[in-house]
């Protein structure tokens, strides 16, 4: 879109079928001109190489853990200079930068109540360096640091509940979204910007290389994560659950797991059945907790 082109451009280095640019352009569609702070990660590498910047908005990358702190500084500066009208401050950070490395800075930003929109691009592992497990990697996923082997069937521990952590900080608006529904991302960002204070949106974003799928499967697989209730799309305003994306005929989790290389071993591994049953339990629990079944 021509309007998009001015904020984020073609020619970036994302893999064919990558979910990140879809998430970024859907967010920028809602924010318009804004100030972007980016943590280290795939998005930084594909969009900000020297002389090849894909950004049409002010953009800063500092280090891995401090995107939330940098954004907080920008917001405080804009306030002090009386320049808040020039656009919102937005953080784009990966799941590792959000749930592991940068969680301290994020907690501080929430705590001080900065007027910042924090967008976590959740591709469920450190994909930039080649699929190492993060706090947001789901159980059963085979990564280079949790490889499926004779003993362990991939990652053992649960996916960290970041939306709940954001809610515990009394973030004013907390939502999850998926690249399978870009118009929904745009709507949620528009809604988030109506709140003054810290806001958190976590976007499920496909990684074709890390998940082991073809570019063509990216959107269908992302859609299956939502349709199986493994990735519930939920919205909280001032701590209250206000909207969810209902699911008609919820699908079994196997349908989401089967097309992906990172879960392939689950269908052969002696402990695979247990992990699939655990993931199905998580999905059932999500459906019950948030009332997802239509």
């Amino acid at each position: 879109m021509s309007e998009n082109m001015r904020l984020f451009g073609s020619g970036h280095g994302a893999c064919p079928g990558c979910g990140l640019p879809i998430a970024v352009k859907s967010v920028l569609e809602a924010t318009g001109p804004c100030f972007v702070a980016n943590s280290t990660g795939c998005l930084e590498i594909i969009s900000s190489q020297y002389g090849k910047s894909a950004w049409g908005v002010p953009y800063i990358h500092s280090v891995f853990e401090n995107a939330a702190a940098v954004a907080a500084g920008i917001e405080a500066a804009l306030k002090a200079l009386g320049r808040k009208d020039e656009g919102p401050v937005v953080v784009f950070a990966g799941d590792g930068a959000t749930a592991d490395i940068g969680i301290g800075c994020l907690s501080g930003m929430f705590d001080r109540g900065h007027d910042v929109l924090y967008v976590c691009l959740d591709n469920e592992a450190y994909q930039n360096t080649g699929n190492q497990q993060s706090g947001l990697t789901p159980p059963g996923s085979s990564t280079t640091t949790t490889p499926a082997g004779k003993v362990l069937p991939g990652k053992v521990k649960a996916k960290k509940d970041m939306p709940a952590i954001a809610l515990a900080h009394k973030a004013r608006y907390v939502a999850t979204a998926s690249v399978a529904f870009p118009r929904d991302i745009t709507r949620k960002v528009k809604r988030a910007l109506e709140f003054e204070g810290p806001k958190y949106i976590q976007i499920h974003s496909v990684c074709v290389t890390g998940w082991g799928i073809d570019g063509k499967q990216a959107i269908p697989v992302a859609r299956l994560a939502v349709e199986t209730a493994l990735y519930p799309l939920i919205e909280f305003e001032d701590g209250q659950l206000v909207r969810v994306r209902k699911i008609k005929d919820r699908k079994p989790v196997e349908e989401y797991l089967k097309p992906q290389r990172r879960f392939r071993h689950l269908f052969k591994h002696p402990k695979g059945k247990e992990v699939i049953a655990e993931l199905q339990r998580v999905a059932d629990e999500n459906a019950k907790k948030f009332g997802l079944d239509a």
Binding site: M5, R6, G9, S10, G11, H12, G13, S47, S48, Y50, G51, K52, S53, A54, W55, G56, V57, Y59
Partner: peptide
């Protein structure tokens, strides 16, 4: 200095 939208010169 990084200028806006320099990625457009990378024809992918």
């Amino acid at each position: 200095v990084s200028r806006p939208l320099e990625s457009l010169k990378i024809k992918t």
